[in-house]
Structures are given as C-alpha cells and as structure tokens.
Design a protein around this nucleic acid. Structure first.
Length: 577
RNA sequence: CGGGGCGUAGCGUAGUGGCUAGCGCGCCUGCUUUGGGAGCAGGAGAUCGGGAGUUCGAAUCUCCCCGCCCCGACCA
C-alpha cells in the first residue's frame, strides 16, 4: 500500500517551465519523473511503479509467446560493432567511452551484434531453431535533438527481441508470432494504435511494420485509409498510377517563357498564352539533388515538393541526399537553372528518378533546357526516359489509397513498436551459421523487434490525460484505487484504513491519502493529477454509512454503503480494464 | 548543425546601472481551520548559470564559455 503521508512525492502546482507536451508536463507535475539533463530523466516512486507495470505486461506477453529473456550489459566493447561496421556507421549518435587503458567501449543503442554472438556461442544446429530471445534494457543514443520529455530521450528503456531461423519461411513465421504478441501487449496496455507499413531503412531487410500510437504530439506522420484500413508511414506510402496511351498527344513544342523560373509564374503564362485549364499539376518539376555525390534528377508534378525524407527512405544504401548548390550546377553546364527538363538528361549525364505520378505516357509542361524557354507536350517514354521510378513526392491528405483508391487521411503518432525481418545482414557479418539436415553450413536469418517501454509511459499519458491531470489505464496505473480521507475525524481515517486493507487483501493495489492536516481540496487535486483510475472518498458521507466512489476517467460519482464498498469497487474496476 | 527563446531559492516568477534582490507556491514553528489547491503570526532558504571585463557601483552593460526549451536538419 502506498501511503501519501510517507510517499516520496511532491506534486507541483505550476507547470514546469521547460515542459511543453502534456505527458512531460504532467509526469513532472504529478511527481513521476524529474529532468537530469537534456533527454535524461530520473524516475520517482510513482514513475518507477508505472514503468515496472508496463515492463511486466511486456515481459508476460513475451514469455507467454515462448520468447526467452536474457540480459546484456549496456556498456559494450567496440569490436563486435566494428565487425558489422556500425562503430562507424552509427556516427555521432553512438555514446563512446574509454577505459583506463584507452580501450574503446560504447553504450548500446541496440543489441543486434550481442544477440547474434550469444546465439553463435551456444547453438550450431538447425535442430535448435527457431529461437527467439529478448531483453528489457536501458539504451543510449546521443540524439541530435532529444525532445518532448520522455518521448525521445537519450537514455530510454526498450524491450528488444531477435528471432533466429534457418529459412525465409521460418522468419516470416517468427515475425508473425511477434506481431501477434505485440497486439496482445498493446491491447493490454490500453493503448490506441495502428499497425502501419514502414520502410526497413538502413537496417536492411524486406518487411517492416511500425506500431504507432496516434496523438497530436507524435513525431511520426502516417496515412490511413478510412475505407480499407490501409496504413503506412508516409515514407512507405505507395502510389498507384496507371500508364496512359499518349497517341493523341501532339508533338513536343518549345515556346518562349521569359521570367518564369517558378511553377506559379509558368502556370500564369500558360493560361494567358494557351487558354485556361493549366495548374501546377500540369507541369513537371525537375529537382536536382546530390545523392552521396551522385547527381540525380527527381521528377515530381509541379504542385508537389520532393519529400527528401521519403526519397531517402526509398534509396537504401544512400547516406546523404542534399539539394544542388551553385558549385554542383557549375559542374553540369547543360543544366539551365529554372528551365530544366528531363529531355536532355542522358546527354548531361544525369540519372533520372521519377515519382510514380509521372506515369509512362503522361504528358507535361516542363523546362526546355534553354534560358527562358519551356516545352509543351513532353511525353514520358517518347520525349524523355525515366531510369528509375521511386516514391519521392510529398504525400497529402486526400491522396489515393494504393489498395482501394479512397482518399486517405494523414495523422500524427508516436512510434511505440517496430518489427522487422532483418534477414542475414548480422548473421553474415558475424558468421552465425548452423549445420542443416545435410551437414552443410547455413547462415541464420534474423528478425528484430522493439518496444519503447519508457516511451510507452509517455505515449499512454498522451493518449489518456485530460485538462486536470493524468488518467491511467488500470494495467499501468501506479495503484488501482486512490483512497482519500476528506476530513480530520479519526473515524474517517479508521474507515479508510479498513477499506484500503480489504482492497489490498483482494489483490487490488491502493494508494491511501492518509495525510493529516491537508485540506480536502488539495487531496482531490492531487488525486486527479496523479491519475489513479478509481478514487474513493471517505468523508462526510460516512455519517450515513457511505463512501463516495469516483471513476477518474468518466468523472462518474456514486455513494456506496461502506459494507459493500470493496465488492462494488472490485466490480467497477473489472469493468474498466 | 541552422533559426528562435530562455537561465534569479525546491517550483513558478518580478526586477534595463544605485538602498538589505521582491512576490506566489512549497518548507519550518505556533494558533485557528477541514468537501475543491484555507487564515493569521513568526521563520529558514539565492555564489542572480560560470568566467573575464567596463564602472565609484553590475542580476542589469560588453566579451567568452556552459546549460535548457521550441522549430527545422537528423533519428537501427
């Protein structure tokens, strides 16, 4: 039982000046966490209990799915990360340190290497597979910009698991088992979430999905189809555009277009010169970019920007994409700034990438590669060639769902889980092999699965709080019932003690506000701020032999006879789950 | 890393060159009070982020450094 008379807790009346998002503000005010440095937080008793509750739900669901818990150090030697090249690849986000002898260590940002090596050390037969291991560990990433309190910290708690299979089919099965376990986990945690397609990114691998908890303060943007349920991270959204027959389109025509370096100015000229009906979407924008020092041209409709983040996500192996600068243009004298068209790309030695919206056979207005000249009826496949199609244009609300053509909606969310099929990248690099039925050595294939445990504290707070405070789901709350003594009479304290003890006796955890000399108003405000799902007030109603029972989330209040209070509370609590 | 804001007691803040750095919350003592962040009285608590400089005099002006928050870049 938590007793507020002795609990190490001080709630704050004012919002902390350095907290903006609701979860951060309320977790600090209600005394769950305190900031130590940018992106680094301490956990006070209420916070620790809440974090542990989430951890335990995660642990139970992993165990019941048949995954086995192990534990690695947070401080790791350099060598394994050198073998997979991540000592270098991970860059400045990796916390590095040295021991007294000058030997390099790192604080683990994720543990693929260690798990791979652990399995390598114990197993060597196909008969041992499949295998899935997990840990709940503190991770360290020196984020360029930690933000939003506990949502993106530099130290955070993560559950990471890894599956090991002999075959690709086995990997798919392991992946599905994790997916199912994640669904059970997040359901129990009382979270709203969407499972969305993601881009596997630099980690490689074929299939990847994210569990996103929708909330306005989230930093991930995703699309959702209201009709068929298609959901994807904007980076992974695909565009379906059919090829068209260009045979009716007239020949390419170059025309004078003085002072039209922008799409807007071009559209205006088109409409005055050739009649109305032209919009930005009629034009073809040529964006020149450097992809790891290779010059590429990216084609998107004129009314859309290139989404560099999306583009990069769809160009695995490319580390940096940046826009063309003056010195780059100087190297390609064939490019006339503001009047670039794809017609001469080959001649200029430029690789042409096109968004799928630039479908084969479509006709465009674009630059004529000459100062103050544009071209009309420029047809893909006839007047220019596309080297690669790639998702590059920014996504908008109302874009077509790739599976059912319905207009999609765009929403923001916090990433709380990520599952993906890694494949053999780490097993190859670290030589994790087993012997198959024929005695032949086979490289193991892996999956990797993460849940942001400390982030889930914030995500749940974001999704469940209201204007007056936190409001936890039953599974994660630091106690299930908050018993408030409202008054100074000893009989009130005695009755509250008894109800609390009875609840605890039934396995229902209680926080008892047994502070003497604290006014009822203060206790009510604290209870609402702290967010325990049920509040029981032992106060003036006791004269009639009653206590008042409140449901934090709905605000529902009722008076119940003391004798049946424990039964009623247990019943209501069960209905809240 | 680019842009913006900020740093005064545990928390929130006032204070643009001049008296002992002010107020609210919280904390301590006493009395009163107890159903919505109580009242009165008395108290403790501050190297004004750090350093250097300008000045008779610096929380306040100048320079350097450190830290924090927000937007963006970045984020297996």
């Amino acid at each position: 039982m938590l007793r507020m008379s002795t609990l190490f807790l001080r709630t704050l009346r004012d919002d902390p000046a350095d907290a903006e998002v609701p979860s951060h503000r309320l977790l600090v005010r209600a005394g769950y966490i305190r900031r130590i440095a940018a992106g680094i937080y301490s956990w006070l008793p209420l916070g620790v209990i809440t974090l542990r509750n989430i951890e335990n739900v995660v642990r139970q669901e992993m165990d019941s799915a048949g995954f086995q818990e192990v534990h690695f150090p947070a401080m790791l030697p350099r060598d394994p990360y050198e073998q997979t090249n991540r000592w270098t690849e991970y860059g400045p986000d990796l916390f590095r340190l040295q021991d007294r002898k000058g030997t390099d260590y790192l604080l683990g940002p994720t543990h693929e290497e260690m798990f791979t090596l652990m399995v390598k050390g114990e197993y060597s037969s196909y008969k041992d597979l499949p295998l899935a291991l997990y840990q709940i560990q503190t991770k360290y990433r020196d984020e360029a910009r930690p933000r939003s309190g506990i949502i993106r910290g530099r130290e955070f708690v993560m559950k990471d698991s890894y599956s090991f299979d002999l075959t690709d089919e086995g990997l798919v099965e392991s992946y599905q088992r994790h997916r199912a376990a994640y669904i059970k986990t997040f359901d129990r945690l009382g979270m709203k979430y969407n499972i969305v397609s993601a881009v596997a990114g630099a980690m490689g691998g074929s299939s990847s999905e994210e569990f996103l908890a929708p909330c306005p303060t989230g930093e991930d943007t995703y699309v959702l189809c209201p009709k068929c349920g298609y959901a994807a991270n904007v980076e992974a959204m695909t565009t379906k555009v059919a090829a068209v027959d260009p045979s009716g389109i007239g020949a390419l025509e170059v025309f004078d277009s003085p002072n039209t370096p922008t799409i807007d100015s071009l559209v205006e000229l088109l409409n005055s010169k050739f009649g109305g009906g032209y919009t930005g979407a009629s034009t073809l924008k040529n964006v020149m970019l450097m992809a790891d020092d290779v010059a590429i041209s990216v084609l998107v409709p004129g009314d859309r920007e290139v989404d560099i983040k999306r583009l990069q996500a769809n160009m695995p192996g490319v580390n940096e994409i940046r826009v063309f600068e003056e010195p780059d243009f100087a190297k390609f004298p064939g490019l006339v700034k503001g009047y670039i068209g794809p017609q001469d790309a080959k001649k200029n030695g430029i690789t042409v990438y096109a968004d799928p919206r630039i479908a084969p056979g479509t006709s465009w207005v674009t630059g004529a590669n000459a100062r103050e000249k544009h071209a009309l009826n420029v047809v893909n496949g006839r007047d220019f060639e596309v080297d690669h199609y790639i998702e590059a244009a920014q996504i908008r609300e109302g874009d077509s769902c790739p599976t059912c053509d319905t207009a999609v909606v765009i929403d923001r969310a916090i990433e709380i889980g990520h599952i993906f099929q890694l494949g053999r990248k780490y097993a190859d690099a670290l030589n994790l092999t087993v012997l198959d039925q024929n005695g032949k050595s086979q490289v193991v294939t892996m999956g990797s699965y993460g849940i942001g445990v400390s982030r889930a504290v914030a995500a749940i707070a974001e999704q469940t709080h209201d204007e007056i405070g936190l409001s936890w789901p039953v599974e994660v709350a630091p106690a299930k019932v908050h018993v408030v003594v409202a008054g100074k009479d000893d009989s009130l304290f005695e009755a509250a003690e008894k109800i609390s003890a009875d609840l605890e006796g039934r396995g229902i955890s209680v926080m008892l506000d047994d502070r003497r000399g604290t006014s009822p108003g203060v206790k009510f405000k604290d209870a609402e701020l702290i967010g325990i799902p049920m509040i029981v007030v032992v106060g003036k109603a006791l004269e009639q032999g009653n206590v008042e029972v409140r449901v934090r989330k709905s605000g529902e209040k009722s008076e119940i006879a003391v004798g049946s209070a424990v039964d009623e509370i247990a019943k209501t609590l069960a209905s809240l789950k």
